[in-house]
Design a protein around this nucleic acid. Structure first.
Lengths: 126, 126
DNA sequence: TGTTTGTATTATAACTCGTATAACACAAGT
DNA sequence: ACTTGTGTTATACGAGTTATAATACAAACA
């Protein structure tokens, strides 16, 4: 998967990297077990410092998205299974859904929108 | 609606205020046209500076959630209708859904979770 | 005129971000 | 043994941003 960053964005570089990898995993374009670039390699490709990439990887590791071995490198986590979504995540999702509901005219219409976005994610992958 | 803030939280005070009002509107506990406390009143209730409350209100105003008049005070926006959700919002939702999908074992199960959270929001409101 | 509303300005301490550099620990290959 | 290539840790730094506050200003209404 090709990663791209926008140096002019207000979103932090490490956050952009993290977001794209999360999106890649969630959409199925990155599969469990898949090998990611090394921190140094990705840093060079993007023309940024390796510590910035490391920061993104550290974040993803804390989120349980990736796993690292000393020598093998970094891989997408094999066992995606968490029986129940973290309460922290549920809170964030609930808030974001509330925001969408507040901006929408009709609840049913908003519900359909959410399902469409989810289907698009899991289907096309982008 | 009673607002509460956590002074020890890492989330900024103005963000906590903003989030709770968004949640209130999205869940229906705050209805269009409803009058919100004045910046000074809310600041006093919470024991914080009025400018911090103003920052939350400014944010909400930019999001189109509330409307302010000089003398009348601040109200929940009357016309919730935006024909289509802002693309910015869709991007954020897509990313958050991707995160959830990445953390879930089964896509269908995750879909059901999302619908449950949405139903809980629009039904009980908490 | 006085009160109450939101707003603008300014200040400041704290934090963030990205970078840079270096060193470390580990595992595998040679 | 030695080298190589992983991720990791530590430290530092400077530009920029954030969060909160104190104060003063502007507008609307009774």
């Amino acid at each position: 998967m090709l990663l791209e960053i926008d140096l002019t964005s207000t979103i932090a570089l490490y956050q952009q990297i993290r977001d794209q990898i999360v999106y890649g995993i969630g959409s199925g374009r990155l599969v469990p077990g898949e090998l990611l670039p090394t921190v140094r390699q990705l840093a060079e490709d993007l023309g940024i410092n390796a510590m910035t990439v490391n920061k993104a990887y550290t974040l993803l590791k804390q989120e349980g998205m990736i796993v690292t071995d000393r020598r093998q490198g970094t891989r997408v986590t094999e066992n995606p299974a968490q029986s129940r979504l973290p309460s922290d995540y549920r809170t964030r999702l609930s808030l974001l859904l509330a925001e969408g509901a507040a901006k929408s005219a009709d609840p049913a219409q908003f519900r359909a929108e959410v399902l469409r976005i989810l289907a698009e994610l899991q289907g096309g992958g982008q």
